[in-house]
Amino acid sequence: MRHLLSTEDLTRDDALRVLDTAEYMATVADRSVKKLPTLRGRTVVNLFFEDSTRTRTSFEVAAKRLSADVINFSARGSSVSKGESLKDTAQTLEAMGADAVVCRHPASGAPYRLARWVRGSVLNAGDGTHEHPTQALLDAFTIRRRLGRLEGLSVTIVGDLLHSRVARSNMWLLSTLGARVTLVAPPTLVPVGVEQWPAEVSYDLDAVLPKSDVVMMLRVQRERMTAAFFPTEREYTRRYGLDADRLAAMPPSALVMHPGPMVRGMEIASDVADSTRSTVVEQVANGVSVRMAVLYLLLGGTREVT
C-alpha cells in the first residue's frame, strides 16, 4: 500500500493486515509509556480543509505514538483561505518533505488529486461525500473485537446514505470482509445507482432490526430537511431513529454504533447512545489504534511490528 484513498479499492488481505496490526497497536495504549519509536524522523502532515477536531486529533495522537513529527496544517488562517490552490498547497508540503499527508477535504476525490502531486503517502481522512476509509476500518475493528468475527454478520447502516462517506466506506469494507450489509434510509437519501452496490436496501427499519447483528446509525444533518429530503425532524426520528423500543427489537447481543458526532434525539435516543450495547466511546479509542496501524503500514513498510 502506498496510499489509503478508499476502502472500495482495498483488498481483503490489506484490510485484514490493518486490523491485525491495529490489535498490536491497541496493546501500546495499555502501557504506561504509550509510544513506539517506529516513525522517528518521519513527518506526518494533517491537512484539514474541513473542521474536524475528532479525526484530526485521532490522527495526531496516532502519529505521535509512533514518534513521528506532526504538523497540523488547517485551511483556516492559512494561505489556503487566501485562494491558494490545492496543487500549490501540495507542492508546499512536498517541498517541506512530508512523508505522509492526512487529508480531509469537502470535495469528493480531493485526496486522489493530492496523491498525484506529492511523493509521500496520502491518507484520505474523509473526502466530501465519497469515502472515509479509516472510519470504516475502525468500525470493522470494533465489531471484530466485540463479536469476534466479521464474516457472516448482518450489518445494518441507517441514515443519510446519499451524503455519507462513512456509509460508502463501511459498505465496501464490510462486504469485502464477508459481512452482509443492509442499507436503510428514506428513499430520498438513497443514491440513484445504489442497486449496483454489494448491499441490500430497505426503507423499513423495523423489518430489518431483528435480523441485525450490528446497527450503525449515521448523523442526519438538519439542513437536509430544508432541502425537502424529508418533511420534519419528528417524522425522520419516528421512522428512522433508534430509540429504546427499537433497541429492544434487536437481538440481545447486537451492537449499536455511531461514527459521531451524534445528534441525540434525532437519529439516536440518548439512552440508546449511552447503553452498554453502544460502542460509541470504544470506536474513538479504536480509531487511534487503527490509524497507528495505517500510518505504520504506509510509512514503516511491511515488516512485522511484533
Partner: peptide, 18 residues
Amino acid sequence: AQMNEGAVSARLGLSGWP
C-alpha cells in the same frame, strides 16, 4: 451537479446531473 447521476456518481459521492 458534478457528473452524470447513476451508478458511478453513487460510488464516487459526486452529486448527480440526472
